[in-house]
């Protein structure tokens, strides 16, 4: 039964990824712009073009190209970047950790802001405090992440330059890292000076990405909490002598978190999508920044690789959401 569900899930994921691969493959080839033309120096002859096209396999028919590419992907070979002339997989894996760390920090910031505000709003329901939270949430929601990025640059980069405005880490620093997970490694190696530098670079892009999500978490979780607050078992907890805050944290939060959790999953994928522009804005050396370069250069193999990795992340996030949903809901776990 559980094995069946699991297999079904795996198949669904594979089909999703395959679909994404097909769509991306076709779209970027139908879109205007020739990668070869952009690589060649002025004055190159038609035979040079033909030679390069053949080298990158672009002379074959679309289905043929797709099969060749898919065959490689299945074996872990995503091809060679046209603009950077390096293995796509190692390029993508080299940049992925930076984006994952940024997105994770952004998610944590969103939870740290949104969770407490939701609890406070639910506790102070019907008061001016709740109204204030609603207004702030609405404002945070209606401004997209990259605009928040610009606002933050003005605030903390120009007016009160507290945080680093550009890049992932100060170039003057000596990095003892053996992986690209700088933040994780700096913590594991107890190099908190580096952690501080990384976080200082990360803070603004992460906050820009986090604010809309924080607003969504606040408003939705608060609403769910308020719906739970009048249920019998919550009333019973009040009779037991628990304070309103204790009641929310002990009785209401877990059940109210379920609908919010699903939405956080969906919104987190949007947040990762948002890294593309926000990373660009802050010159943060992540996958999103690389994606923009890849598109500008019509670097077809690299675009395909990046999109496929993003798709894989989205699928995994959905899986994680479903798993934690089952974990939080005993009825699902046993049934």
């Amino acid at each position: 039964m559980i094995l069946q569900k699991f297999l079904l899930r795996l198949i669904t994921m594979a089909v999703t990824l395959f679909g994404v691969a097909v769509v991306v493959f076709i779209v970027i080839r139908v879109a205007p712009g020739d990668p070869i033309a952009m690589m060649l120096p002025p004055g190159a002859g038609p035979e040079d073009i033909a030679r390069l096209r053949a080298l990158y396999g672009l002379d074959k028919s679309l289905p043929h190209q797709f099969l060749i590419w898919l065959g490689g992907v299945v074996q872990g070979d995503f091809g060679t970047s046209i603009s950077l002339r390096q293995d796509v997989l190692s390029l993508v894996l080299g940049r992925l950790p930076a984006t994952l760390e940024l997105a994770t920090v952004a998610l944590l910031i969103a939870l740290i802001i949104g969770g407490p505000l939701a609890v406070i709003g639910a506790r102070e329901r019907g008061t001016a405090v709740e109204a204030g939270i609603d207004v702030a949430g609405g404002a945070a929601l209606s401004i997209p992440d990259f605009l928040w990025g610009l606002v933050l640059i003005l605030l903390f980069g120009v007016l009160a330059p507290i945080f680093e405005i550009s890049g992932r880490v100060s170039p003057s620093l000596d990095l003892p890292f053996s992986t690209q997970f700088y933040l994780v490694e700096s913590i594991l190696r107890l190099r908190f000076d580096l952690t501080a530098d990384l976080l200082s670079h990360m803070f603004m892009p992460a906050l820009a990405l986090a604010l809309p999500l924080a607003a969504i978490i606040t408003l939705l979780l608060k609403q769910s909490l308020k719906e739970v607050m009048d249920l019998d078992y919550v009333v019973l907890a009040r009779v037991k002598g628990f304070s309103e805050t204790q009641v929310i944290l002990r009785e209401a939060l877990k059940n109210a978190a379920l609908p919010t959790l699903t939405l956080i999953g969906v919104q987190f994928t949007f947040l990762i999508g948002g890294t593309v522009i926000v990373e660009r804005l802050f010159s943060y050396e992540g996958l999103g920044n690389m994606a923009i370069d890849a598109v500008i250069n019509r670097d077809l193999p690299l675009i395909q690789g990046i999109v496929l990795v993003f798709a894989l992340i989205f699928v995994l996030i959905n899986l994680a959401v479903d798993l934690s949903y089952a974990l939080l809901n005993p009825r699902l776990r046993h049934g």
Partner: peptide
């Protein structure tokens, strides 16, 4: 408010009407 809550918690109890909704489903 706090003292009142503690007094009620210590001296009284409630047997609710509907045992289906009076227990937290996730605890």
């Amino acid at each position: 408010a706090a003292a009142r809550r503690r007094l009620i918690g210590a001296r009284t109890a409630l047997i609710p009407q509907d045992p289906l909704t009076a227990l937290n489903p996730s605890r």
